[in-house]
């Protein structure tokens, strides 16, 4: 931990960031993000297996941007998110100072996104076996059974949009669900509106989701939303050979057009 504190301190002191985002254990014993602006506050930073939140979500926040250059302590999923966000041209290389802790417990500071790309490819997190099993199980159901499963789960959604707010890849300034000319998505949280919302969100994340599982973790109703995006990621991988958060350059099937596409509808 001391090494992490020293790193944050030096980053703030040498001016490579004016705000450093890390985890802390709050007075209430919660793991929360901390926003360190003074070198002497660096010892607030904490890291452990209980640090689940994907901190990449904060780099989109206006009040964070107001600080100028930002440093961020990133777990492996945060790294993947940052790389995907970078690939999607949402951050500049010189805007962020990214720090992680490698499997040997050493602090790693990245000079650029190329280094992050190399790092995440060398340290790819294994898929969560429990989630894979659940996805597999759902895939083996009949279409009707699967529909019933999701209808049942999604009908409980209260539309608090915690899934959207916690997701670093949901960075649109105006979400489709907030557009009302036309009203693409029914905003009330009845079953139809909920299904429209979650299918739309999952589709927008197909092949972009870094599988941090924040959407499921934060859901007040315990809906396993990550299973939707995990499945779609799997499909994007099989069909297009794409995996999100592993490349600093955009290669995104759902926004790519090829003249020699094998499908007819696209011509």
């Amino acid at each position: 931990m001391q090494e992490l504190h020293n790193k944050i301190k030096s980053i703030l002191e040498n001016g490579s960031a004016s705000l450093f985002i890390a985890y802390q254990k709050s007075r209430e014993g919660k793991i929360t993000p901390t926003f360190i602006t003074k070198p002497e506050q660096s010892q607030k930073a904490y890291f452990g297996d209980d640090c689940k939140q994907n901190l990449a979500v904060y780099i989109h926040k206006q009040e964070v941007k107001n600080f100028g250059k930002v440093g961020i302590f990133a777990n492996i999923y945060t790294l993947k998110s940052l790389l995907q966000i970078y690939a999607e041209n949402q951050i500049r290389d010189d805007y962020l100072k990214v720090v992680t802790i490698n499997p040997n417990g050493a602090i790693v500071e990245f000079a650029n996104f190329m280094e992050i790309e190399n790092y995440v490819n060398e340290n790819k997190p294994a898929p969560n076996p429990e989630d894979m099993e659940r996805v597999e199980k759902l895939s083996n159901l009949s279409r009707e059974e699967r529909w019933d499963y999701w209808l049942n789960e999604l009908s409980t959604c209260i539309k608090c949009y915690a899934c959207r707010a916690a997701c670093p890849m949901c960075y649109c300034t105006k979400c489709t669900v907030d557009c009302n000319q036309p009203q693409w998505i029914s905003t009330p949280s009845h079953s139809l509106g909920n299904i429209e919302w979650h299918i739309m969100r999952a589709m927008h994340l197909a092949g972009r989701c870094v599988e941090c599982n924040e959407c499921a973790r934060v859901c007040p109703m315990d809906i396993p939303l990550n299973l939707l995006t995990v499945k779609l990621n799997d499909t994007a991988n099989i069909e297009f050979g794409q995996q999100a958060g592993l490349k600093g350059e955009l290669d995104y099937a759902l926004s790519t057009f090829k003249v020699d596409d094998k499908e007819n509808f696209i011509r």
């Binding site: 964070v64 608090c160 007040p220």
Partner: peptide, 11 residues
């Protein structure tokens, strides 16, 4: 600063 702007607390 930590608030991500969801409505979970209110709901």
């Amino acid at each position: 600063l930590a608030c991500i702007g969801c409505g979970a607390c209110a709901y």
